[in-house]
């Protein structure tokens, strides 16, 4: 399955991903209408700022293969979709106990205020590419299979090594 992969060195902290996420999860899916909607549309991706390093990094659900949230959910509101392999949330089953939030390694299970249920990334089931990825102006977010993403990283690493061989020094 394709995942939202993060290239943290590219994030400029503009929060475009957050807004695009909230708009995609609004009633109208239109920015200008979404800002007036009730319930207020909520984001599922979070740009976290680390003051000591002066960097911002987007954090979103990893759709873990062995997802602790699905293991602990007492009502099976959180489960793995066997076809798409995504970790999905069924609000109608959710009792709002927040056990999932306690065990999530990334803190990306939020709370839908009005319905008082859990809320998390669904990888935008109505879209080919998740809204956050499309909105990122610096391509800090990419939607790719892990094998492809890693493949690119490997070839970049190989290129660095090769250049080092040519100049006689490995950077």
């Amino acid at each position: 399955m394709k995942e939202v992969m993060i290239r943290p060195e590219r994030c400029m902290g503009c929060r475009s991903c957050e807004i695009a996420c909230a708009v995609e999860h609004s009633e109208s899916k239109d920015l200008f209408s979404a800002i007036g909607e009730s319930p207020v549309p909520c984001k599922r991706i979070y740009v976290e700022y680390i003051p000591d390093l002066a960097v911002a990094i987007p954090i979103t659900c990893r759709h873990c293969e062995d997802a602790p949230c699905t293991t602990v959910c007492p009502t099976k509101a959180l489960s793995r979709d066997e076809v798409s392999r995504r970790v999905i949330h069924s609000p109608e089953l959710c009792i709002g106990c927040w056990t999932c939030s306690m065990v999530c390694n990334y803190g990306v299970i939020g709370r839908q205020k009005e319905a008082r249920v859990a809320m998390k990334c669904d990888l935008c089931p109505d879209r080919e590419i998740p809204a956050c990825v499309e909105a990122c102006p610096t391509r800090a977010l990419v939607y790719a299979e892990v094998k492809d993403f890693s493949g690119i990283k490997r070839s970049q690493a190989a290129l660095k090594l090769a250049k080092g061989m040519q100049t006689g020094s490995i950077p």
């Binding site: 503009c14 475009s16 200008f32 499309e134």
Partner: peptide, 9 residues
Amino acid sequence: QPQCSFGQL
């Protein structure tokens, strides 16, 4: 595309 939402608003 997509253009900055903060700018649009």
